[in-house]
Amino acid sequence: MRAVVQDGYGSPDALRVRDIPRPAPKEGEILVRVRAASLHPDVWHVVTGLPFALRLMGSGVRRPKQPVPGTDMAGEVAALGPGATRFRVGDEVYGETLRGYVWRNGGAFAEYVVVPQDVVAPKPAGVTFEEAASVLNAGIITLINLPPDRPFATDQRVLVNGAGGGVGVVAVQMAAAAGARVTAVDTGAKLDLLTSLGADRVVDYTKDDLPGGPYDLIFDIVGNHRFTALRPLLAPDGRYVLVGHDQYGRDGRRWLGSIPRLLGLVARGAVNRQLPRPTVKFPPKGELTGRLSALLESGALKPVVDRAYPLDELPEAMRHLTGGTARGRIVITI
């Protein structure tokens, strides 16, 4: 089969498409013929090996243990492993290829990939393979970062910072569908999109300061402001959530990236109710994919695909990703 192969960490320009053996599903696994896969910052992190700490978090120290990048995809079931009974050959499915919440390659940038049957779901009718692949990583990131006791809700005042990217367009739509009053912040070129997705107020951060609150929830995707600067915008019982973004290495923190900042906020959350409380428990990915399916089927979540690139043009797609101009998600078609 054709697949993108990563021999080591470094520039995305070194990625090449090669012919490699097709994998075979084991107990409880299915083989999926991939039609589309999502390109997002987590893929960039593992391709480049930055920050260096992630290599000790399951990816591989000198080179990736899994040589094929990509973690979320959509396609058709091509074969069943022993004990795999949830799907039949020919079913259209989508999901992440990795069971846990880890930073490593998942083999999605290939014609075929093996995945555990419990991490994928039936692809909703009326949603293309490209659209289905585009919402997975973004939707899961949004759901696991929402405070368990503070989901999007009616009349909740929500600020989404970095609203026009892959995670942002999902967060804006989820909040709007729940009846929240959404303020979306991004560049001027993305504001019309954000308005169409349900934002009540849009702000071009290159021209205007962040609008005054108070907000019940600040969902900060890009992290270009410190918590101390945003805290005055929160209501007394409001919450601040940092998704975190290392600006594709431009911040210079090559060893640990944004990890110290995230851990610092979590530690402070033990005593500051405006910050997330420490937790190591997350819902299974299959459960989260099911919640995304319900939103897609109801029309509350409409996938936003900026552009689709063929497998051979992955390095060019990476350059587009790191340029920061994408509206929604970039996908790879296979």
Rank of each mutant, 00 (worst) to 15 (best):
L50S: 12
S196G: 09
L296D: 05
F282N: 10
L256N: 11
G249V: 10
Q6F: 04
T228V: 11
L321E: 08
A184L: 02
L217S: 03
A153M: 01
L197W: 02
T142R: 06
V280W: 15
P41D: 11
K123C: 05
R104Q: 15
W103C: 11
I20G: 08
P116E: 01
G162F: 00
R239A: 09
K302P: 00
P67L: 05
A133V: 11
E316F: 14
R157F: 02
K190W: 04
T183S: 14
P67C: 08
S196V: 08
E27F: 10
S258K: 15
A294R: 04
R254I: 14
A294V: 07
N272Y: 11
I141E: 14
R327S: 10
L146A: 09
H40K: 09
A176M: 01
V34E: 08
I332F: 10
L262P: 09
P211V: 07
T325R: 15
G252F: 03
I141D: 13
R63E: 07
A37K: 14
G244T: 13
G238Q: 09
V47Q: 01
E313F: 12
G168L: 02
R254C: 00
A175Y: 02
M318F: 15
R22K: 12
N224Q: 14
A326M: 10
A178W: 03
S38V: 11
L191F: 08
D216R: 01
Y215K: 01
Q173R: 03
G8S: 13
P25G: 02
G107E: 13
G188Y: 01
A79N: 08
N224E: 14
L191P: 00
G28I: 01
R261E: 15
G213I: 06
R22I: 10
G107F: 10
Q173K: 06
V222F: 05
L217A: 07
F87C: 00
A176V: 06
A189N: 06
A108Q: 12
T97W: 12
P122M: 02
Q274T: 07
S196T: 06
L193C: 07
R273D: 12
H40I: 12
P315C: 12
S298G: 00
A189G: 03
S258I: 15
E297P: 00
D208E: 13
V172Q: 01
S11G: 10
V169A: 04
G162W: 05
L242F: 12
L15E: 05
Q66C: 12
G83S: 08
A235H: 04
R88C: 04
G75R: 11
V114L: 05
D216K: 03
G162L: 02
P69L: 10
R150C: 14
L275G: 12
V113N: 09
L321C: 10
A270Y: 02
A37M: 11
P25Y: 05
L301E: 04
R231N: 09
T71M: 11
I259Y: 14
Y240M: 05
D19A: 14
R239C: 08
R157C: 00
D42A: 15
D216P: 04
F87T: 00
A180N: 05
D91G: 12
Y309S: 13
G100Q: 13
D208I: 00
R86V: 01
D42I: 14
I30N: 00
P232F: 03
N145S: 13
L314R: 13
G28K: 04
G107Y: 09
L15V: 12
L197R: 02
N145I: 10
A163H: 04
A132V: 08
A138F: 04
G290P: 03
R231H: 09
V266G: 08
M1L: 13
